[in-house]
Write a protein that binds this DNA or RNA. Structure first.
Lengths: 113, 113
DNA sequence: TATCGCTATATTCAAATAGGAATAGCGATA
DNA sequence: TATCGCTATTCCTATTTGAATATAGCGATA
């Protein structure tokens, strides 16, 4: 066994509405106040980060991220209350799932190379 | 909300050791006794099915699928006891996770378009 | 020992995806 | 009103992925 991990996503049609990467991105946006700074910290292109945000905003009934194209220091982006709630629900979901699946995950992990 | 679903995979380094598609494939191989028949039923190419099996066999300490290139009716493939055990563990893991995550999944699903 | 169907693998081509660079636009603030 | 940094979008290229095809090899069994 080496690096096994549960990866839990919420698929929505052909898209992923929420997953580990998107959740991390939301947290980074919350921490840095902009998509571009979050992207840099996560070592992905601004383009990719923007796309992930766009997918999320379009999957959900309301945007999770609100962004301002201009203003002080170029504007920025922040989580909406809605976004914060979804993020928390997802994180809770992950914790509960992992906990419930621990025994099986341990078994499977032990069987990996 | 339309078609939200939890997708749970077990990642192993850069590869996916087990996931929904691989588990379904294992079941199809178990049911049909060959990779080729399983592939046909799942509407994927033999090549792709073989690759998925190959990844699984290489991620785990023992092969999950044993295959015979020749013999009656061309041989075939079947699950090893090891493979059957892993498959069951994974299916159990999914059930337990889904159950534990139900409340949060319902909340998030209701927030989707 | 010839047949048959499946495994195993290489090659080629098309398609989807990811990444990089370039650029326009925006608005608070100095 | 000029500046600045970030958002938003386009275009092009490179890489990855997937499908289709072709072919060799295998061994039970008839």
């Amino acid at each position: 066994m080496t690096t096994p991990a549960l990866k839990i996503r919420i698929s929505f049609g052909s898209q992923v509405a929420m997953g580990p990467g998107k959740a991390d991105l939301l947290e980074a946006i919350d921490a840095f106040g902009s998509i571009s700074a979050a992207a840099k910290q996560m070592k992905m292109s601004y383009r990719r980060a923007w796309e992930l945000v766009d997918v999320m905003n379009k999957c959900f009934a309301e945007p999770l991220v609100h962004s301002s194209p201009g203003g002080a220091h170029g504007g920025g982006a922040h989580l909406t209350e809605f976004g914060r709630t979804i993020l928390k629900s997802y994180r809770d979901l992950i914790v509960k799932s992992q906990l419930a699946a621990q025994a099986e995950l341990t078994k499977i992990s032990a069987a990996l190379k």
